[in-house]
């Protein structure tokens, strides 16, 4: 097997997957709710990068179309959770 650009992409995908597992650890450990949201935001960013890398690796362009939609939807989710945390102070808090 020769080492070409395609194999290089595979190494990158492996490293990013390890990064997602490390970030998920913080998602489970995180002492406060904002800590968990930060970890979730990091996972979302890495997943978008991973989808673009997968699109190049499998040569399936539809993956990168999904990545754009995923980036925008995850932003909406982050904003929604942040809004919820902000208002939950009066009702007793989520921390």
């Amino acid at each position: 097997m020769t080492f070409g650009p395609t194999e290089l992409l595979l190494i990158g995908i492996a490293v990013l997957s390890a990064g997602i597992i490390l970030a998920l650890l913080r998602l489970f450990l995180g002492p406060t709710a904002p800590d968990r949201v930060v970890a979730l935001d990091t996972v979302n960013t890495i997943v978008v990068g991973l989808m673009v890398a997968f699109a190049a690796y499998f040569q399936e362009v539809v993956f990168v179309d999904i990545a754009v939609v995923y980036a925008l939807l995850s932003f909406g989710a982050t904003m929604f959770i942040a809004r919820y945390m902000e208002r939950s102070k009066e009702t007793g808090g989520v921390n």
Binding site: P34, V37, D41, F75, A82, R83, M85, K89, G93
Partner: peptide
């Protein structure tokens, strides 16, 4: 979206 999301989380954390 990334800096805007970070700003939203920081603000929510400080206000909560």
């Amino acid at each position: 979206t990334n800096p805007t999301g970070a700003h939203a989380i920081a603000r929510a954390a400080r206000r909560s």
